[in-house]
Amino acid sequence: MTRLLPALIALSTVFTLACNRADSAPRGAVGADGQPAPADKTPINPPIGATPGVTSDGQAVNAQGSATLEFRKRVDAYVKIHNDAEDKVPNLKRTDDPKEIADREAALGRMIMTLRAGAQPGDIFAPEYQPYFVKIVQDDFKLRSAADRKALVAELPKTVKIDINTVYPTTLPLETFPPALLRKLPDLPPELEYRIVGRSLLLRDVKANLIVDILRDVVPTIPS
């Protein structure tokens, strides 16, 4: 739980700011471009700072906290699948045979894909939490210079196609994930990492080299 503390603090800040803006904009609504959504349009995602949730017995709950916990719950569920898959493929220890590494990575990837057949975007990036991801990423990019923003996506060709529950393209580099942004996002267990590809934020399984979830159109458009 202590690992979640920075994220909870960040989310609380976001929540407070969103609530403070409530008089001048639809309550916390954020469009895909990071700007407050016009009043006559329904936001794609649940709005930041929305009315706190209500439990079945009528108790109000903190919307940000429950969204974070939902994301954490889904991450934990994924890690359980990952661990189940690891139990079903040969162990990987340090080896001087690269074939063992490649075979094991592929086998683990296949096993997870099988166990998660039918996985859909948003299975881990919980819909409740998606607006926060969008805001955190877009706010971070707003603070960066044009050169910095460009550098963050410069390593990958623009035509890269990615999909959920598939192998991250093995011939492509991994874009460096900006450490300052990483600090603002909820911490992940070692099995998973965030990555940016184009305008998408990914969750990648490190050992299986697998794309396990995608949140598209998160990163602001970067002029070439």
Partner: peptide
């Protein structure tokens, strides 16, 4: 590890990373 490297290189003994 560089940005072109699969982090699973850490299991390759000759790279001395100890996993």
């Amino acid at each position: 590890l560089g940005n072109h490297d699969d982090p699973n290189q850490r299991f390759y003994k000759n790279f001395g990373m100890g996993g």
